[in-house]
Design a protein around this nucleic acid. Sequence first.
DNA 1: CGTATCTTGTTCGTTTATCGAACTAATTCG
DNA 2: CGAATTAGTTCGATAAACGAACAAGATACG
Lengths: 418, 418
Amino acid sequence: MRKIDTRDFRRATRATSRQVNRQILLNLVREHQPISRADLARRMTVGRGVVTTLVKELLEEGALYEGALGDLPRGRRPMMLHVQTRDRLVVAIDVRFSRTDVLLSDLGGTQIALERFATRFGPEELLDELAIRVRRLLRAHAAEGRCEGIGMVIPGMVDRRSGRVLNAPQLGWRDVQVRAGLATRTGLPVHVENAPAACALAHIWLGPAERGRGTGESGLSGGSGIRDFVYVSVSDGVGTGVVVNGEVVRGHGHTAGEFGHIPISADGPRCLCGSQGCLEAHTSNLATVARYLGHELSPAIARELLQRSGVTVDDVVRRAGDGDERARDALSETGRYLGIGISMIVQALNPGQIFVGGEITGAWDSIEPALRAEIARRALTRGAAETPLVPEPAGSLPRLRGAIALVAAPVYAAPQVG
Amino acid sequence: MRKIDTRDFRRATRATSRQVNRQILLNLVREHQPISRADLARRMTVGRGVVTTLVKELLEEGALYEGALGDLPRGRRPMMLHVQTRDRLVVAIDVRFSRTDVLLSDLGGTQIALERFATRFGPEELLDELAIRVRRLLRAHAAEGRCEGIGMVIPGMVDRRSGRVLNAPQLGWRDVQVRAGLATRTGLPVHVENAPAACALAHIWLGPAERGRGTGESGLSGGSGIRDFVYVSVSDGVGTGVVVNGEVVRGHGHTAGEFGHIPISADGPRCLCGSQGCLEAHTSNLATVARYLGHELSPAIARELLQRSGVTVDDVVRRAGDGDERARDALSETGRYLGIGISMIVQALNPGQIFVGGEITGAWDSIEPALRAEIARRALTRGAAETPLVPEPAGSLPRLRGAIALVAAPVYAAPQVG
DNA sequence: CGTATCTTGTTCGTTTATCGAACTAATTCG
DNA sequence: CGAATTAGTTCGATAAACGAACAAGATACG
């Protein structure tokens, strides 16, 4: 029931049908591999002849490969098909205040090599440094012809289409053309996105991060299958990625998902954004640590306090695990405030699932009860009250997975038609 | 960048290309009529031959008709095309606590006949009554073969796919199969939807209501062109319809858009939903009248108070227009609270436009300044702060227009592919 | 008035997709 | 070994876009 945009539509040409079916087939293999041609034909309710020609095309392009023969009780044994991810590489970049991560990975999310360095705050200097490291990384792994592109996530507002960073307060950037700068330096296609939005994208395309990571089999099983969910990222800031109908919502001015700055109390602590009582001011890592130290202060004062005390969120999480009651209470209170914010998301968008990412998920048993209680208390329906909550530990590098998804998504996405 | 749903996808068949192009063409005529075949070919960047065959098909189906010859400086004069709306009728039904409206209209939204009657709260009784009235209405206007379907809007949660009302507190309905009941009684296709979501749908497909309504030319110009917006309906309850990428968002459990029950104050008035300080508790018509009468009470008490005083929102709006300072202050305060709620919508979804519907728009000059100020104060970007606000008076029957859109949308929507 | 020019709309042969039936290949069962 | 069964390929039929040629209807200009 989508309206056709008469200013910007895509007409069906002779090749469109094939493109659509090709992409459906590719995704069926992705989510059901290993799978035979005959099985694909049955799932697509199409003759096996069509599958033969589509698969031949995809094999020639290197998008699929033939594996072993399958087993059947009777008849000829089928040739099993797989998606090719090993020879299709991605450079994922995560820029943050404290440091910048550069990861060489394959399209399935399997990590190959990870580098870290102190972020340079001048955009040109950072891009120069990144270009050098990307070239070196690709050469070191003989990956120069096999890299499909660069995905880059930024803590701030990004115009994904033009590849411009609109405003990243943590980096002090405003209106910076990142895509063109890095693309000309490296000769690779570059995708830039806001970090929480990219994390949500990773859950669409790569599924939730595995606990026992590093397995040979990739995480390319194709995500949770739920097409309406919200990813809540809790770290220095609090941001969200909103997914509706299998697509990330970016809004009219590329600033959708800024749930971090909705007010949840009229007289709460002052926030960096200038407002008061924002969700972020109550639930960021800074707020949690300040609360642990016995203060509910404005971030400017809290930041100073923290530097003096030297306590980090990871410390609070660890002490909670060791049974420190004050740490558990501080985290539980963060969970309660987070619940107030998330209950608004539930009422506004009725997502099928909510992912929570960040360091505090390390103390999920301190967070979850208060969070769940607050959502249940405010929900209007039983279904909304029971919206599944899924924690994602910061150790699984969700932002880098988001950067990978930026490159993977266009490879597997539905062609735009209409 | 949409992910293909491998559990529920639509494969491209031989007919798909044509269906897509047919629908694009239909929408181009809809939004640019009168328009010639040659113009359509240029806009679609396709040969005129394709347009000829597509148009022939649409003419035979009665979706288009040929009008007069156009004028050109040189060359053969083009035959102008129009969409057929006059001979394609719709029955629109708006069920509310106070009354039920039944409207016979055409696909373009031009009203033909309107009936009103007291709502019967038994679902079966109401459906019986509706079936009788629909049949009578169609016979009286010799429209029995020309009716495309029935659109019905409900104040409550609706599963649009199955046509069930999940929960409508105002009517006291729970789990009522409305669609099947009315379809078998009338023999017509029936579409059921939550009222604010339908109002949003009307803005997608019919555009904003005209001030000087009743003009011969229909409102089928095709909407505002903005594909991300929110419709906020303020009446007995406060609800919203959320539109992302030209499509209404319904959520995982069909309850998206319940912004009315997000909390905007911790110690605010108690709401009918059981919670406290909900947006609805601060901004519903009930709340506005109570505030005018000098109380900020829970709705249960307020309802009784109102019945004793006999004052309605329309009275408050009228008195504000006459210069009553107390009325203006009460409405301004409603605007301020509405601004708090809407600023959350702006931060969450960054819509390109916000429509406000309901009786209080009759005193827009009392509402708007406080509303605008609150949004600007909380917005994170200049673009968000300047999000256009568009009032829609209750007199333009937005809910009935929503019901019409329920029938019109599937006729013109993009075919689902992928 | 006659002719060149220009634009609209139709027709028709070419290419390329799905569709479906026939065919070959590989395997198990009796 | 032969019948039955399943996988995968091939090939002719059909229907769509594509593109060039053509007819129809209008103006401009001698």
